[in-house]
Every structure is written in structure tokens, then in C-alpha cells.
Design a protein around this nucleic acid. Structure first.
Lengths: 221, 221
DNA sequence: GAAATTATTTAGTTTTGTCTAAAAATATTT
DNA sequence: AAATATTTTTAGACAAAACTAAATAATTTC
């Protein structure tokens, strides 16, 4: 596996994440995600196309090639392993790990990463509940759904949380909701999209629609 | 504390290390240390002078300012803490840690480094026996001497080893010499600078002059 | 101490990654 | 479908960090 610059890696990673939603990624979407100008994106995409990491015809949007996908999974593996390390070992709080991992993820020494993985006990998800690719780039793809889309009275388990601000962390801690929490919805209120939820051995309580939008669950308990 | 590029940091670190011997560092010495060309050094020194990290008059050699020294100690702190982490936690062998730490040292997040330090239990020396600067940049300066300069029959403790190849590691492991080993010299042989040394509860044995040159000790046991 | 050698600096180029402004292609409106 | 608006690309510029080749300063040698 060749080596890529920090900038190249950041572009690859951004495409990977944006691809999730749509199939392809546009110049403006990328420029926005990376806080650069569209012209810079075009330049970088030409380069990544030349390296066969991205498929791209002018004006047609971008998508990662198989090789590009592998590179992206390597970056994400490093990022999430470091996040796990920071939270688990160094006791960083959940909302601080992302920023630090943004730097550490670019140290791409395979032996380092694999030994870190082993040291951490081969964790399967990072502190936000996102799955960590293994040494071969294999990633768990349990389809998670947004809490707002969970039907009423259906057992589910919190699998990840999208927003990474300290504000949401504070709220989640107060409500005792974290990755792995088993819950079900008792009632949804159309008016403000708030809902009443029930956690085992606790009284039911209310959460706002805005909070629910940032919580993802998988079916089952 | 401002942020410096990887290249700037590498230059600062190189000056710091080369300053040890002589008082000032020359263009050629630096170019040689960093595997670059003298012209590139001149360019970088102008830049570091403008940032008040280096004192420099054309043709007069370089030396770090107080600020430059602080920056260097920060880099060395990060380097040695990561080395300790790699050896102690990830079980890298002694001769592998330097290279990996060369990359990790440039991630200069103060909170990360201080929490890492705490997690490791505030180690005072790295796996080669070199002292680790504390969060304030204070560094232990026990004057260590080369084993070749240790007088005969004088108790001493191995404090560091300079060469970092796997070959020397293999030899040291075989001879059961490591950081902290207490020993004394029984006899020095002028002819090839080899010497007979004695470790407590072991039979005396011989080491070559070349090996002795790479072992540093401090007085006492 | 003049000549030769060595070290250092200057001048001009290259590559990477970004930018702005203008041009071209695509999408949207009416 | 023509006009307008938006998106994307091109063209040209700039800063960082390196380089080569040539010029200049310092040092060494005879």
C-alpha cells in the first residue's frame, strides 16, 4: 500500500463519508466539507484520478474506485482506533476524541496500527458507536436507523450518535443514554417531533426531536 | 505556544541535538543530519531566524534561542513519550520505536501529550535511557559518560545506548546488558580497546571497543 | 599571504496544495 | 426553448519546502 499526503487522505476520507448518502459526490459538496474552494477540489480530483483512487469525468461528480475505498478504510481504521485509545486509555471525553484523531490518523505505519488494535483488544466500535475496520479493511455494516424512524414499542439499542459537540454529550449523560443503551419509544408527538422513550428499569421520559435526530439505533435488545 | 511545520520541527530538533557537542551548528552539519542540501538549510535558517527561534548571522553557524530551545524540548518530550508508549504498551522492540516516534512526535496537541504522560505514569527516561522533559520543558541532566571513559573498578549504571540498530540490540540482549544494569570495568585492553566487564552475580566477560563506545553510564550503583 | 580548497549563500526552478477571477458547462425558470 | 442562475473547470498566481548551479566568503595549505 502506497503512502498518501495528509491532504490527499483528507480528500479521500471526505469522499468516502459523502458517498454514503448519495452515490457520487459533487465539487461543491467536497469544497464545503473540506473548507476549501471548488477550484482546489478539481485540482485534487485530477490528481486522485491519475492515481486511480477516484473515478471522475469533468462535471460528472466523483466516486472512489476500489483502491480508493481501501485507502479510505485504512484512514478510518486509524481514526477510530485512535479515538478508542483516547477515550478508553487516556480518558478523553467522547466529544474531544474526534479532533485529536484527525491528526493521529495520518500516521500510517501498519505495524503501529495493528499493534495498537491488538493492545486495545480489537475493539469493534469507536466511542461514537461507529464500526472500526479490521486489518484487512473489513467493516461491520449493521444497518442502523435514526431514532426518529424507529417504530413505537420496538426494542432497539443505541449504536451511535452523530453530532459530536460537548452540548449533546452533556444532555446524553444527563439522560443516561450512551452507546449500547437499550430502549424503546412509547409515543411520538407529531407537533414538535419530540418523543417519550423508556429505558429498562427507569421511568419513561421525553426527548426533543432534535436530540432524536442525532441518535442512531439498531433493532433488538 | 505556536505551531510549527514538520519540517521546521525537524530542523529545530536537529540543531538541538547537534548543539550538544559543539556550541553552534554549521550549515553542512545540519544538511548532513537532515539529508538535505546546504542551500535548503540556509533557506530554513532564515525562516527560523525571522521567527526568533534561531540566532544566525550569515557564515556564522546557528544556535537556538531560548524560545527555540523550548520548542525543541517540546518535540523531544513528545518523541520520547511515544517511544516509551510504543515499547512499554505496544511491545515494540527497543530498536523499532525511534522511527515510529519520528512521525508521532509532530502531533503537537498539548492535552494529548500531557494525558499520555499521565497514562504512562510520568516516565523519566525513554527506552534508550534518554531523559523525558516534563510538561514545563524541564529535563533531567545527569551527566553520563561513555563506557570507554569509565575508570577501571568503578561502579556505574548503564543509562543509555546511542546506536539504535537491531544488531546492537541483539548483542546487548545476549550479554544481558540493558538500561539500569550495574557494572564495572575490570580491565581495559589498549590494543583493540576491548574491555572485560563484570555485572553483579555474573562471571566477568569481554566486550568490544565498538560496543563500549555506544554504551553510556553514570557513576554509582 | 596568495592560491587552492571548502563552506555557505544567492538566484532561479520545481512540486504540492492552495487561491482568485474568468470562462465554460449544466440546471433552473419562466 | 431562451434567459438566468448555478456549478464546475481553466488559467494564472502564490507560499512552502525542496533542489541545482553559480557566486561569494572563509579557511587551509604551501
Amino acid at each position: 500500500m502506497l503512502n498518501y499526503s495528509t491532504s490527499e487522505e483528507n480528500h479521500i476520507k471526505a469522499i468516502f463519508h459523502l458517498q454514503k448518502q448519495d452515490g457520487t459526490v459533487t465539487t461543491n459538496e467536497l469544497a464545503n466539507e473540506l473548507n476549501t474552494k471548488p477550484a482546489s477540489i478539481t485540482d485534487m480530483m485530477k490528481k486522485l484520478k491519475a492515481k486511480k483512487l477516484v473515478n471522475y469525468q469533468p462535471y460528472q461528480g466523483f466516486r472512489l474506485t476500489n483502491d480508493g475505498n481501501k485507502v479510505a478504510l485504512g484512514i478510518i481504521r486509524r481514526h477510530r482506533l485512535w479515538e478508542y485509545f483516547l477515550a478508553e486509555k487516556l480518558k478523553f471525553s467522547w466529544d474531544e476524541v474526534h479532533e485529536v484523531a484527525e491528526d493521529l490518523e495520518h500516521v500510517s505505519n501498519k505495524k503501529l496500527v495493528d499493534k495498537l488494535d491488538e493492545y486495545l483488544g480489537f475493539p469493534r466500535v469507536d466511542p461514537h458507536g461507529d464500526p472500526i475496520p479490521d486489518a484487512n479493511g473489513k467493516i461491520e455494516t449493521t444497518k442502523k436507523i435514526c431514532l426518529t424512524d424507529l417504530p413505537v414499542n420496538t426494542p432497539a439499542t443505541v449504536s451511535s450518535v452523530s453530532d459530536q459537540s460537548s452540548e449533546i454529550l452533556e444532555l446524553l449523560e444527563h439522560k443516561k443514554i450512551s452507546i449500547g443503551t437499550k430502549l424503546e419509544i412509547r409515543k411520538k408527538f407529531e407537533f414538535d417531533h419530540s418523543m417519550e422513550i423508556k429505558i429498562r428499569q427507569q421511568a419513561a421520559f421525553n426527548i426533543s426531536g432534535q436530540l432524536a435526530k442525532n441518535i442512531f439505533v439498531k433493532y433488538g435488545s
